[in-house]
Simulated assay, not measured.
Amino acid sequence: MQTKQTIAIIGATGNMGSAISKSLLKGNYRLLLKSGDQGKLNNLVKEIKSNNMAADVEAAPCPTEASWEADIIILAVPFEAEKEIAENIKEVANQKIVISIANPLNETYNGLVTAPGTSAAEELQKLLPNSKVIKAFNTTFAADFSTPVIDGKQVDAFIAGNDGDALESVKALVSLAGFNPIVAGDLSVSRTLEHMQLLLIQLGMKSNYNWLAGWKILHN
């Protein structure tokens, strides 16, 4: 029998955090959800359980406790919030998978705030040197989780990281969420992935995609 893993989702009530939380209920996971808005968090847990009484999900009192119990930690928070969270979970995230979904966008969406030659995920890895940081879910919009097939094509979701076993674990989560997982390379490839989403956001704003758009590699 497969051992049930625990996933902590920090920032669970945001658009992405909520979408990820709901998408992972189909798997054999225990979900610990954490948000700065306790009212929204309680409502999210109630909503999930009302739709699925058997859902193994609960609100977590703090990110440190949630991360201590977790096998996999998903930081569904903006880039600027990652540093403080990393400081709080550094010890309890030792040797654990930590997923960064952040895109370090500037306020006008015409560039990234990270310096050239680095990425949000690489900066997080520096803050969590003993964790297995993986980039995932950053090239998808929240709306894609409910509609992962667009125009008859399954949206590709790209993953980057330095640990092979961790990449395989995250591939399973991405597939469970409904996307086609593609391991793009090591963590440095996060620089490209974050720029890809910046471009998709810019195109969406220009062409009115209504936040329902995704990347697809066509090949033979």
Rank of each mutant, 00 (worst) to 15 (best):
F79V: 02
L33S: 07
I89R: 06
L32H: 05
D56L: 15
A60Q: 08
E47G: 02
L167A: 10
A102D: 10
D144K: 13
D151R: 10
K4D: 15
S175A: 14
K4I: 15
L112T: 15
G14Q: 01
N103P: 05
L105T: 14
G164I: 08
F137Q: 11
A81I: 02
L25M: 05
V170M: 06
S190M: 04
G204K: 03
L31N: 04
M196D: 04
A93M: 09
G39D: 14
I159N: 10
S188D: 03
L124H: 12
E91H: 05
A76V: 03
G164F: 03
W211D: 12
T3C: 03
G36W: 00
K26T: 08
I73M: 07
A136T: 10
L218P: 00
L128T: 11
T64N: 10
E84Y: 11
N28G: 03
F141N: 05
D37L: 01
P61I: 04
G164W: 00
L25S: 00
L75V: 03
V189F: 09
G36I: 00
E122Q: 14
V45R: 06
E87N: 12
G17R: 01
S18M: 03
L200E: 00
N94K: 13
L124R: 12
L176N: 13
E107G: 12
E122I: 05
I73S: 09
I20C: 01
G14T: 00
L176V: 01
I72W: 07
M205L: 10
G11M: 01
V113C: 14
I48S: 05
F179M: 01
I134C: 07
E87C: 07
N208P: 00
F137D: 10
S35T: 02
V92M: 09
P148G: 10
I101N: 05
N42K: 12
E47F: 00
D144Y: 09
N42E: 13
N130Q: 15
L75E: 05
I97F: 05
N210I: 00
G178L: 05
E80Y: 11
V92D: 11
A184H: 10
L105Q: 10
N106P: 15
R191G: 04
L75K: 07
I182A: 03
E82L: 06
G178W: 11
Y29K: 11
G14W: 00
P148D: 09
K40V: 02
Y29I: 03
I74W: 04
K83Y: 11
I134K: 12
G161E: 14
D156H: 13
D37R: 12
A177N: 05
V149D: 09
V77D: 00
A120E: 14
I9Y: 07
L218A: 02
D144L: 14
T108A: 15
L44A: 06
P78I: 05
I97M: 08
S119H: 11
V189G: 03
S21I: 06
I74P: 07
Q95S: 15
N162V: 10
L105Y: 14
I217K: 01
S50G: 06
S119M: 07
V170P: 09
F79R: 09
Y109K: 14
A120D: 13
N51S: 05
A143H: 11
G17N: 02
N88L: 11
N51P: 00
N52S: 10
A213P: 02
K171Q: 13
K216C: 00
N94Y: 12
N138E: 13
V45P: 07
D165G: 08
I72N: 09
T140F: 07
